[in-house]
């Protein structure tokens, strides 16, 4: 088994392409995206807010989860760039340690 980093980014749909461009530009070998169904956030004001996928055809209120597993050497550059993106857009970024079987794939 080989050590890798798993990045999870939940980001609003309008910023999805920007996030993908950052990942691709940093040289990650792949990522997958899933639609988020609903969520809850306490927010800065302390007023909890629930949200769910809307029916608006522009999907501007939707959220997407991007999962990418990458080499440990890439993670700092990727998170630095994504940090700027989620500084502007609605999003949550997390990184965890994972192990993979096929080293060459990531």
């Amino acid at each position: 088994m080989f050590d890798k980093k798993r990045l999870e980014l939940i980001i609003e749909k309008p910023a999805f392409k920007r996030a993908c461009r950052i990942l691709e530009g940093c040289g990650v070998t792949g990522y997958s995206a899933l639609p988020c169904m609903a969520g809850f956030s306490l927010g800065e004001s302390g007023n909890g807010r629930r949200w769910q996928r809307g029916t608006d055809i522009s999907a501007s209120g939707d959220m997407v989860l991007i999962i990418s597993i990458m080499d440990v050497a890439l993670i700092d550059a990727v998170t630095q760039k994504l940090e700027v993106l989620i500084g502007m857009h609605i999003g949550v970024l997390s990184v965890s340690d994972v192990q993979v079987i096929r080293k060459d794939k990531f």
């Binding site: 609003e12 910023a15 608006d56 522009s58 999907a59 501007s60 209120g61 502007m88 857009h89 609605i90």
Partner: peptide, 21 residues
């Protein structure tokens, strides 16, 4: 509530959608 919110999320993400929507 379709075209402008989508454009605002792209061009002006600092604005709160909970207000304008």
């Amino acid at each position: 509530y379709i075209a402008v919110p989508a454009a605002m999320r792209l061009a002006l993400p600092q604005a709160q959608p909970s207000i304008y929507l």
